[in-house]
Write a protein that binds this DNA or RNA. Structure first.
Lengths: 210, 210
DNA sequence: CCGGCCATCTTAGCGGTGTTCAGAAACCGT
DNA sequence: ACGGTTTCTGAACACCGCTAAGATGGCCGG
């Protein structure tokens, strides 16, 4: 990490980058702020002019990384066969987690830097959008659609975390995709066969990765 | 923490108890081994005669706590209406997590003290048993039954972790139960409407909380 | 009853951590 | 050229996990 000037230029961004590498290499907590500073070529205390604490650094990084997941899901849905959009988004979710488990753990751990963080597009929202399509297409009734994003999200998130934490193991990307697809397919057909409810469901509230 | 003898008697157990309280009070990582030792009334280094490291202490505690969840699920299923057994077990899973989020995070984080830990009954196994009942009752075909534990488990685990990590919020225990029930009902009906597969599915492997 | 053994606990200390704070260094507008 | 401001440094504090060497006292053979 060469540095020709006394002032760094973009120390804040560089620290986030270093932290992301360290998370990837050694896990969410397997590194120190001092180490990240050293990697950037700066004294330990320099970081405190950009982040109030190590924890804020980590949570800011989590926010930054989460947006990438949302984009990946949206892209996957966009380039998929119209009948497969949700499935594609779901597959992207768990693939992302498995490809980079440490970073995924970082994000899943929750706790955002800014409460009103504008993470766009948020995974929850791309799931919601796809389910809206399904409702318009008539495969989901109004009552089944209400809160449906939470059942799909829960299923995906569950598989992703079980894999990422090593609680469950699948061998190979093919099997992984199959499992993710089965999950969202099961959820969708389950929802579509749901007995109609009198009052539209409300479901959980205040989704946030914050 | 009085102590009349120089030797403690059951320092190992006392340390696990102290650690469990500390996890409950301040989160999985919001405490130090020194603090747990002090709470038990013992010098910091005493712990190292019973646990190779702080990490081993924590993972041993996780094992101990996990068995409680399995028992709760089994009990809930046992005392439930026969048609509601899986639902009851699932409800127990997410209730348990929400009632004691820090401890749940501890368990969910994974990593066991002994790889071959005989955690009985394991949550995965009680889910499996209930799905076997459903298969016998004919609501699940053989191909739908194969690997179904992972679908249900993933859904439950996803909701539990989303709640525990504060990524979603439901207000009140009623809403919580409703959500958990919807999840497993959706999964079951989704699985029961699954198009039959030629070869019985294999599904993920090596379930373990270790 | 006693002496010694040995598991158990303690004291002291090492290297490393997050964080603070006073001051040096370089950039920037005038 | 210079003063003010931003940005980084150096030293220090309290605490951490962990180790090594020694004190303590329950226990067992005599």
């Amino acid at each position: 990490m060469e540095r020709r000037t006394y002032h760094h230029g973009d120390l804040r961004g560089a620290l986030l980058d270093a932290a992301e590498s360290l998370v990837r290499e050694r896990g969410v907590d397997g590194w120190s702020l001092r180490e990240a500073s050293a990697r950037v070529g700066v004294s330990p205390s320099a970081a405190y002019h950009h982040f109030a604490s190590r924890d804020v650094l980590v949570r800011t990084l989590a926010d930054r990384v989460l947006a990438g997941l949302g984009r990946r899901m949206a892209n996957a849905a966009a380039r998929a066969d119209p009948a497969q959009r949700v499935v594609a988004a779901g597959r992207a979710y768990v693939r992302w987690a498995v490809e980079d488990p440490s970073v995924a753990r970082l994000v899943f751990r929750g706790g955002s830097a800014e409460p009103a963080a504008a993470v766009t597009p948020h995974p929850h929202d791309v799931l919601s959008a796809e389910l809206d399509r399904l409702a318009e297409a008539g495969v989901l009734s109004a009552s089944a659609r209400a809160g449906a994003e939470y059942v799909v999200w829960a299923a995906l998130h569950g598989l992703a975390t079980l894999l990422v934490d090593g609680l469950v193991h699948v061998d190979g990307p093919r099997a992984l995709d199959r499992e993710a697809e089965r999950l969202v397919r099961t959820a969708i057909t389950g929802l579509s066969h749901e007995p109609p409810r009198p009052v539209p469901r409300t479901g959980p509230r205040t989704r946030r990765y914050d």
